[in-house]
Simulated assay, not measured.
Amino acid sequence: MSQIWPFDVKIKESLSPREGIRYFRCLYLYPVKRRFEEVAEILEEVVTNELNRFRMVPATQPAVERIDLVTSSEIIQEEIWTKVLDADLIFCDITGYNPNVMFECGVCAAWKRNDEVKLIKDHFFKQESAFDIAPKRYIEYEMTSRGRPEFVKKVRKLVEQALIRYPDGRGRSPEISLPLELDFRDSRDTGILYTPPFAHRRAIGGRLEFGSSQDFSHSWASLGKKRFRDIDLEFEAKFSNAVNEEEAWIGVGLRSHHCFAPFGHILYLRANGMIIIAQPNDMPPQLYQDIRLRNKMPIDTDRDHLFRISFDDRALEVEVDGFSRSFRVRDMPKVFKDGLIRFQAYYC
């Protein structure tokens, strides 16, 4: 039986099996009129480009779902509420205060976090803001030669922020109490280390083997969902099934907000013996710099390698197999307040 009331749909969906593996979902809610087609096309282009930049696959085609494109035989209201429930980022176009969109916007406010719902409206629509949404910021757009590039820039930033949050917003992990010691000598796994759904993972040979040799964005394991500011960390790691002896590496992201280099400090050891730290900055286009700490040298990739890291408000101190370096925080171009501890691998 189809449901038309949002609460009934939410109850129905909560009792249904949810996708264990799912892709990023974006939704555009707007008055179904031709004048909004250009806005929809801009959102589609920006979201598609950003998904490609983050090496992510859209959940749907087109990448931005729209209610007017629904082809299901189900009652459309149930489709709308299901899509709202599943969306990771929603653009609500409040131009004209269309009653359908405003009702949908209210459901979004009840079900979604503030950073998951973005209000947009035509700059030339002049009307006093509705009282209940007046405190929330919204983005204005102008479909003019000057206005389009500015709108694209703003949307790109919002989508980027959503995609940065997305991987760490999936799944659950138990609370962490410190100090913490983990070992896998009995080859038993633990839920404390969280890995993305597409990652290979198994406890074997007294260690946890994880990662994806072909997809870097799924080749990591975080220490739960806890955000750390001060870090005192020691761990052993080894290479496994390296598919590129020159490029393969193992390491850890510190104060990490995403597995990519601009969103945390990443210390790593390459299979060729090189030790590198990726340091974020605000210099485009990369927004980070690879700092080579040690040049190439022969290493045994079949043995464990010891990492020691200390990170506080004064200094970042790193050590790999006895080779150490120290960085003063005040000299770093960019430092995040806190973030995940994210063990990472590449091509292995």
Results as ranks from 00 to 15, higher is better:
173 S>M: 02
161 Q>F: 05
78 E>V: 04
341 I>M: 02
61 Q>H: 13
207 R>W: 04
64 V>L: 12
139 I>M: 15
150 E>G: 00
340 L>Y: 11
31 P>H: 06
87 A>M: 06
55 R>S: 11
255 R>D: 13
121 K>A: 06
333 P>E: 01
245 E>Q: 13
39 V>M: 08
133 I>P: 10
169 G>H: 05
60 T>L: 00
51 L>V: 06
23 Y>C: 10
122 D>E: 14
102 M>G: 02
215 D>V: 12
182 L>H: 04
300 D>K: 11
28 Y>I: 02
134 A>F: 08
285 P>T: 09
330 R>T: 09
136 K>E: 07
149 P>Y: 13
77 Q>P: 00
203 A>I: 06
230 D>R: 14
75 I>R: 14
41 E>P: 00
69 L>E: 14
84 V>N: 07
33 K>F: 08
231 I>C: 04
60 T>Q: 03
339 G>K: 05
37 E>T: 03
112 K>A: 09
324 S>C: 03
230 D>C: 06
180 L>Y: 02
39 V>Y: 12
258 H>E: 12
317 E>R: 15
269 L>K: 05
47 V>I: 12
27 L>E: 02
52 N>K: 15
220 W>T: 04
69 L>F: 12
273 G>N: 07
263 F>G: 01
111 W>E: 12
216 F>T: 09
30 Y>R: 12
197 P>G: 07
268 Y>I: 03
329 V>D: 02
213 S>A: 12
140 E>M: 14
137 R>E: 07
23 Y>K: 11
7 F>H: 12
272 N>K: 12
315 A>N: 09
210 F>A: 10
201 R>L: 11
88 D>P: 02
146 R>C: 05
49 N>C: 04
345 A>D: 01
219 S>V: 04
246 E>A: 13
73 S>G: 03
94 I>T: 12
159 V>F: 10
81 W>L: 08
219 S>A: 15
33 K>V: 05
186 D>F: 01
153 K>N: 10
162 A>K: 04
286 Q>C: 04
149 P>K: 13
176 I>D: 08
87 A>K: 06
62 P>N: 08
340 L>N: 10
348 C>L: 03
97 Y>S: 01
160 E>C: 07
256 S>W: 03
315 A>L: 06
341 I>C: 05
302 D>E: 14
147 G>R: 15
174 P>E: 02
284 P>S: 08
208 L>D: 08
50 E>T: 06
213 S>Q: 13
188 R>W: 02
77 Q>C: 05
211 G>Y: 07
307 F>P: 14
143 M>N: 07
277 I>C: 10
90 I>N: 09
258 H>V: 05
237 A>S: 11
151 F>V: 00
164 I>C: 06
40 A>I: 00
293 L>P: 10
287 L>K: 05
180 L>M: 13
83 K>F: 01
34 R>F: 05
134 A>Y: 05
184 F>K: 09
288 Y>Q: 03
3 Q>L: 13
328 R>A: 07
257 H>N: 14
127 Q>N: 08
286 Q>R: 14
211 G>K: 06
192 I>L: 14
57 V>T: 15
258 H>R: 04
2 S>G: 02
159 V>I: 09
28 Y>E: 01
29 L>S: 07
330 R>H: 09
261 A>Q: 13
118 K>D: 01
104 E>D: 09
218 H>E: 14
236 E>W: 09
219 S>P: 00
164 I>W: 01
21 I>N: 08
42 I>H: 10
175 E>F: 07
66 R>E: 04
5 W>D: 09
314 R>H: 13
80 I>S: 05
346 Y>R: 08
266 I>S: 09
